[in-house]
Simulated scan of single mutants.
Amino acid sequence: MIGAWVSLTGAVLADDVVTPDPDTVTPGIIGFVVTFLVAIVTVLLIIDMVRRVRRVNYRDQVRQELEAELAAKNAAEGGSEGPGSGNAAENGEAAGR
């Protein structure tokens, strides 16, 4: 009995719902603002990502230049490695961590 009442009520309520015209429905101001904010956040994230990638590339370039200078210095000294001298990559990694 209760199940019949619920299904009857649901059917009556479903008939009373007015479906809006899909050609006149728009997201409105709220939809525009949300879309605009998502676009701004996306642009800011891309700018931040580009900065971080450039920073990593510059650090790698400087590390390679330092390794080349150290290798040239060791070659000019006759290739003798005294105490405290070593691979620049090892020194750079140890100092950087």
Results as ranks from 00 to 15, higher is better:
residue 74 N to T: 07
residue 21 D to P: 00
residue 28 G to T: 00
residue 87 N to V: 01
residue 25 V to C: 04
residue 11 A to N: 01
residue 33 V to Y: 06
residue 85 S to E: 15
residue 9 T to N: 11
residue 3 G to D: 12
residue 64 Q to C: 04
residue 15 D to Y: 07
residue 32 F to G: 06
residue 70 L to M: 12
residue 80 S to W: 03
residue 72 A to M: 05
residue 30 I to K: 14
residue 53 V to P: 02
residue 79 G to P: 01
residue 35 T to M: 15
residue 71 A to N: 11
residue 94 A to F: 11
residue 33 V to N: 12
residue 89 A to I: 11
residue 45 L to F: 14
residue 71 A to Q: 13
residue 46 I to A: 10
residue 60 D to R: 09
residue 4 A to L: 11
residue 42 T to F: 10
residue 39 A to S: 10
residue 34 V to Y: 04
residue 28 G to K: 04
residue 13 L to Y: 10
residue 2 I to R: 13
residue 2 I to S: 13
residue 97 R to G: 05
residue 5 W to M: 13
residue 8 L to R: 11
residue 10 G to W: 04
residue 20 P to M: 01
residue 84 G to K: 00
residue 61 Q to C: 10
residue 90 E to T: 05
residue 23 D to A: 13
residue 90 E to I: 11
residue 49 M to L: 14
residue 2 I to A: 13
residue 73 K to N: 09
residue 43 V to W: 12
residue 12 V to Y: 05
residue 93 E to T: 06
residue 58 Y to L: 15
residue 33 V to G: 04
residue 16 D to E: 15
residue 23 D to N: 11
residue 15 D to A: 15
residue 77 E to G: 14
residue 59 R to G: 10
residue 45 L to N: 12
residue 79 G to F: 05
residue 72 A to N: 01
residue 53 V to E: 11
residue 21 D to N: 13
residue 40 I to Q: 10
residue 64 Q to R: 06
residue 8 L to N: 09
residue 88 A to S: 10
residue 44 L to C: 07
residue 37 L to A: 14
residue 93 E to C: 03
residue 11 A to L: 15
residue 91 N to P: 01
residue 76 A to E: 07
residue 85 S to L: 06
residue 78 G to E: 00
residue 26 T to V: 03
residue 46 I to L: 08
residue 17 V to L: 09
residue 82 G to R: 05
residue 43 V to E: 13
residue 92 G to F: 05
residue 37 L to Q: 03
residue 86 G to N: 00
residue 2 I to L: 09
residue 38 V to W: 07
residue 87 N to F: 05
residue 3 G to V: 05
residue 82 G to D: 01
residue 15 D to W: 15
residue 63 R to S: 02
residue 48 D to E: 09
residue 24 T to G: 04
residue 78 G to S: 02
residue 25 V to R: 07
residue 48 D to K: 07
residue 79 G to S: 01
residue 50 V to K: 05
residue 29 I to Q: 14
residue 96 G to W: 04
residue 51 R to P: 00
residue 95 A to R: 11
residue 55 R to G: 07
residue 13 L to D: 13
residue 2 I to W: 08
residue 16 D to I: 06
residue 47 I to W: 08
residue 86 G to K: 00
residue 37 L to V: 11
residue 32 F to N: 02
residue 51 R to C: 03
residue 77 E to R: 06
residue 56 V to N: 07
residue 69 E to H: 02
residue 23 D to H: 05
residue 14 A to H: 00
residue 22 P to E: 01
residue 57 N to F: 02
residue 22 P to V: 03
residue 22 P to Q: 00
residue 70 L to E: 11
residue 74 N to P: 02
residue 92 G to P: 04
residue 77 E to V: 01
residue 34 V to G: 06
residue 91 N to Y: 15
residue 41 V to D: 09
residue 63 R to E: 00
residue 17 V to T: 06
residue 70 L to K: 02
residue 56 V to Y: 06
residue 19 T to Y: 04
residue 80 S to R: 03
residue 65 E to Y: 04
residue 38 V to Y: 08
residue 88 A to E: 02
residue 87 N to H: 05
residue 64 Q to N: 14
